[in-house]
Design a protein around this nucleic acid. Structure first.
Lengths: 172, 172
DNA sequence: GAAAGATGTGAGCAGTGTCAACTTCGCCGA
DNA sequence: TCGGCGAAGTTGACACTGCTCACATCTTTC
């Protein structure tokens, strides 16, 4: 996990890992079928931690603030574990659809789904999609350093402001 | 470019590329300093195409639909060139900040900046950030297959619906 | 105590990015 | 016309990677 966070999924090498642990280069293969398999395991524990954070955010906040708080938790998780977050959403991993990963991901998103099902009336699907896209987009842009934070600007406040904003665009 | 789109940035191999072109393995190094250098060149032409698309979307639409149309162009570009889009936003590339890449990216985002500067009153920065996060999030989630499209659902309509939605969350 | 399983080892294969020394070719100026 | 120069390509090598196989060892279980 440390190595993933330090070097990214591509930089994580089985041989280097083995060297670090002090075993031979072939030893990791007694525990994981392949490098992808290792990454899958990491992603799964990532989803578990993510689930836990989202669950806590949901439980600890009043209904009307629930979505904002979960959005904060979402972005905070991404910023705290950038490479893990990237791995969890990496298309390479979900390409050969591994059942374990899929289950962990579904479990994690169930919390989200449950909350968005309780959204205000109107087209719930659009609202849910919008909330997710907004939060995910913010997370990714911050992660990649595309959004320049003002000096001593609070990320939490920024997320809250964006989520609270009611601007809409386009003619229906 | 074909190879990038087909195999992703990681799957693109200089040797394989050379083999395909019919030259020796070291030949590419007469044209690019390193593999990263090649990827940078690809990303730069990516930004140029992106700029062009965004510029056209801006020019060809009335002011009140401008943002929605540009959002569509943004997502469409991502969906049409998934791996190029990913490369353009990849943190590995911008890590060792290459001036050429940076300039191309800035030029591309200038169009965006100009439009968001003409946003309705209120906190323009939050509005711009929100629009960008929304569109970027939608693009990334669609790219990674996280959003399940309903059968025969129009992506354009979905984007428009999400952008037009006026729901807000959270207590200020 | 013996069989069975888990873990680790070494050597080796195919593949990669990268480099250095060398050739080859076309152009440009004297 | 010739000489030289620079761009392009080649060969061969180095260090690295994921991965596999045959073999050794150590632990658990019957």
């Amino acid at each position: 996990m440390d190595m993933l966070e330090a070097e990214g999924a591509a930089g994580l090498g089985l041989r280097e890992l083995a060297r670090l642990v002090g075993v031979s280069a072939a030893a990791p293969y007694r525990h994981f079928d392949s490098k992808t398999s290792l990454l899958e395991a990491l992603a799964i524990t990532g989803y578990q931690r993510f689930s836990k954070m989202m669950g806590e955010a949901e439980r600890d906040s009043p209904p009307e603030r629930r979505i904002a708080m979960m959005g904060q938790a979402y972005v905070n998780f991404a910023l705290a574990n950038p490479n893990l977050f990237r791995l969890m959403f990496s298309p390479e991993l979900k390409r050969d659809n591994r059942p374990g990963l899929r289950m962990a991901a579904d479990a994690a998103f169930d919390t989200l789904r449950a909350v968005t099902a309780a959204l205000p009336e109107g087209d719930k699907r659009i609202g849910a999609l919008k909330a997710w896209a907004q939060v995910h987009g913010l997370a990714v842009l911050l992660l990649d350093g595309q959004i320049a934070l003002r000096p001593d600007e609070d990320i939490g406040a920024l997320i809250a402001a964006v989520l609270a904003d009611k601007t809409g665009w386009g003619g229906a």
